[in-house]
Design a protein around this nucleic acid. Structure first.
Lengths: 199, 199
DNA sequence: GCACCTGATGTCGCTCACTGACATCAGGTA
DNA sequence: TACCTGATGTCAGTGAGCGACATCAGGTGC
């Protein structure tokens, strides 16, 4: 018996609770079972015992469901940058932030991997992921600027960090399960330094 | 009298020539005049004296019109990487390729800037641009691998190069007109090296 | 207890991007 | 002359996404 089989009981309020959560779960399950493009918003809504219109009140579009955690991750990383020891260089700040944030995914590695598989299956979703990462880089660049880093250094450090993160994440998501994300990221950041310093 | 006012003459073949070119121009003009999101594919087709269906035979979607040159740019950059002097390091190879390719845009700076303005006005278009750049990075990474560069160095060099290119391009497109793109790129690549090497 | 308000959901009708199937027909080819 | 080909047109969809209005349980003020 899965969670969606829990039936609604007349004792409760006017509506079955947690509409957003039900939509999240219904969408994720359907994206896994049938694929993203083959899944219709009407199907997601039906599975969550809601209407299509309600889906669009909770998520601006069909893709956003998969990026519900993005703003939390961004807030976390921005805070890590803002609160990093003042002595750190921009690049070290960004790197430390990402390595600490690795726990964000480490908690549910299976979920993270499955989500990544879905995203890889659809160009539309990859586009959305890229713009989320670009927004993230922009926010981290802003945080660096608040620490007094000038342009274009702030943007470059943030963008380079996001790039390293992305490559590390891909390797981790598709590589052997036992490897820790933080460790992969560490390697990639080291490689980034060595590759960019050779002129 | 603009180019679109040239009238079709009964002397010619069954169809007015260069449907694709007419669609390109009609779309660009409408995107500039009315904005991307406010422009309808039907309007573009009408302006080009074609039907909506024909638009979709030439372009997979409404956004692709603005990225018609992307594959040429990619081919150019990949070739520059493949044919670079063997002695160059990966990062120097990528950097040289981008600086040479700067001429690609330098030829029509006004067009490039206007196009960039359109893209900046729409999230959808930014998404598409990001995935084009990601594809470009992937292709350049492949070219580096053919030169014997190992992973993740190849991907990192390509991605870092694309990042520098993107930041330089933004600065160039929004900055003072007289500045040369190649010069801006040179600066940004130098900054990238210095920022990533501080640990 | 009653009237009122609020906010989450439902209903309806619409626009527009995009697609598949089939029709048309000028120009080249056998 | 008969046929074929390829670019275009026509038509009838599907599905995402949105605006406007209706519903109604639960809280609030009195």
């Amino acid at each position: 018996m899965s969670l969606t089989d829990i039936r609604y009981d007349a004792v409760m309020g006017r509506w079955e609770p947690d509409a957003r959560g039900r939509l999240l779960q219904a969408a994720f399950e359907l994206y896994v079972e049938r694929g993203f493009e083959e899944t219709t918003v009407a199907e997601i809504a039906a599975k969550a015992r809601l209407t299509e219109r309600t889906f669009f009140r909770h998520f601006t579009d069909k893709r956003e469901v998969l990026f519900a955690g993005a703003s939390d991750l961004q807030a976390l990383l921005v805070n890590l940058v803002l609160n990093a020891p003042a002595a750190l260089t921009p690049m070290a700040t960004v790197r430390a932030a990402f390595i600490e944030a690795a726990a964000f995914f480490g908690e549910q590695p299976e979920f993270a991997r499955q989500r990544q598989r879905i995203i890889l299956s659809s160009t539309e979703l990859q586009e959305r992921e890229l713009i989320k990462l670009a927004t993230l880089a922009s926010a981290m660049g802003g945080a660096l600027r608040e620490r007094g880093v000038k342009e274009p250094g702030a943007s470059l450090a943030a963008e380079a960090g996001v790039t390293a993160f992305r490559i590390a994440f891909d390797r981790w998501a598709n590589g052997p399960t036992q490897r820790e994300l933080a460790g992969v990221m560490d390697d990639v950041f080291i490689q980034l330094r060595s590759i960019t310093s050779e002129t």
